[in-house]
Amino acid sequence: MTQPSQPPALSRRLTLILATACGLIVANIYYAQPLAGEISRALGLSPQAAGLIVTMTQIGYGLGLLLIVPLGDLFENRGLTLCVMGVGIAALATAVLAHTVSLFLTAAVFIGLGSVAVQILVPYAAHLSAPALRGKAVGDVMSGLMLGIMLARPVSSLITHLSSWRMVFIISTLVMILLTLTLGYVLPVRRPAPGLRYRALMASIGSLAVHNLTLRRRALYHAALFGAFSLFWTVTPLLLTGPEFHLSQVGVALFAFAGVAGAIAAPIAGRVADRGLSKPATLFAMLAAGTAFLLTHIGDTGSHLKLGILVLAAILLDFGVTMNLVIGQRAIFALGEHYRSRLNGIYMATFFVGGAIGSALGGWAYAQGGWGLASLLGIALPAIALCYFASERPATE
């Protein structure tokens, strides 16, 4: 019982199941973003505090990245995943029934906490794959995750338009129950080798972050790019529903579907990394993110041309950010099998902070100087990453 298990190799069927699971689980973090106004009005939350609906979910997710995801290096992965998903199911059901602000915000924290199951599954896929195909495996699974991120907002907007915001959480609760049962049946056992106890495991996280240059670089690269991503998707709904474009929530939902095209970058990035082309692909990803914001300065605000350019920018930005994410994960997963979950937790937590900063900067910049100022900040973030990347030595992946 003390020996690490040797699960079967990652089959095409299991890859598809993991990709689907990652997309469905991660979507729970993003469903509430376009619904913050609807939910706050229903629960009596002031417009100024409506952002707490999203923030509390992010806090829960961030805590889970640091406190739960590293447990993948300590406990059997399938059982850990199912337990964490159980927390998410209970939280989603609570959100459905919540009629007070305090209860809903508490549920939001645990929705975020339960959603970190996705970051247990991604290194789990890396464990099941052969080293030469690890980038392909991670890229294929991450394509599902990115689809979940990009589809969650338009799907929740459309469901709310047709029914109510509570229906979004009802459907998600039922989907998570079915998914948990499915994963419990199909996932092979993967038990890590005996090693550290929990306290020592958590204490090692700081050492890994400080002493591992590849991890530190990759995490900071993506913090900048994910900050730009979060800025774009925080500000563009405000721009599109404003006096320049006058789009409805359905129109914003349709616009958000454009970003789905960027998900095709995940499997491409994995295969490119497997061929030893991580550095040129990283350069391309950073340039793509910066160029996306530059493109948005073409055309007159409110014109059909401008709207088309914004769609193109969304696709290019999402493509670059997804590519950089997968290349970064492939790089850190190659650093060591026995602390792969801890590396993933540090990586994700770092760029998640970058995303939160990007959202906050975007909202402030748009209020102060409109899209012009916000887009300049959007250009600056990948530019900072590019400057840091330029200092990378040849030995660093």
Rank of each mutant, 00 (worst) to 15 (best):
T81S: 11
I89H: 03
A125M: 04
G144E: 10
V116L: 05
L97E: 15
L92K: 02
A95H: 07
S102Y: 08
A137G: 07
L97S: 15
L63P: 00
T106D: 10
L97D: 13
A98V: 05
V87G: 05
T94W: 11
G114L: 05
V138Y: 06
A125N: 00
S129H: 03
G114R: 02
L145Y: 13
G64P: 08
T100P: 03
L105R: 01
V141Y: 04
H127I: 10
G139C: 01
L80T: 08
F75C: 08
I111K: 07
V69D: 08
E76M: 00
V84M: 05
V69W: 04
A132N: 13
G64K: 07
G64E: 10
V118T: 14
R134I: 10
C83T: 13
G144H: 10
V69F: 01
V141N: 06
L103C: 12
L113Y: 05
S115R: 04
T100C: 06
L80E: 01
A93V: 14
Y124N: 02
G139N: 02
G64Y: 07
L103Q: 11
M142V: 11
Y61K: 09
I149P: 02
T81E: 08
L92R: 00
L66A: 13
G139L: 04
L67P: 04
M150E: 06
V141L: 08
L105W: 01
T81V: 15
V101L: 07
H99N: 15
F104G: 02
G79K: 11
G148D: 08
L128W: 03
G79E: 04
M146Q: 11
T106A: 15
K136T: 14
T100K: 11
A108C: 07
V116P: 03
I149W: 00
L113F: 12
V69T: 14
R78A: 09
S102T: 13
L66I: 15
L63M: 13
G135N: 03
L97M: 14
S143L: 13
V96Q: 10
V109M: 09
S143M: 15
F110H: 06
V138A: 09
V109P: 00
Y124W: 08
I120A: 01
Y61C: 11
V96P: 04
F75K: 13
V109Y: 01
V69G: 02
Y61M: 12
G62E: 06
G88A: 07
L63H: 00
M85Q: 03
A95Q: 01
L74G: 05
M150F: 15
V101E: 14
T81R: 05
A108G: 05
G88T: 11
V84I: 15
L92C: 14
R78H: 08
K136A: 15
V109F: 13
P131W: 08
L92H: 03
A93S: 14
G148R: 06
L103D: 05
G79T: 12
E76D: 11
H127F: 03
R134H: 02
S129D: 00
I89S: 02
G144Q: 07
G112C: 05
F110D: 01
L66H: 06
R78D: 03
G144F: 11
D73F: 07
R134C: 07
P131D: 12
I111D: 03
D73K: 09
A93D: 10
S102Q: 14
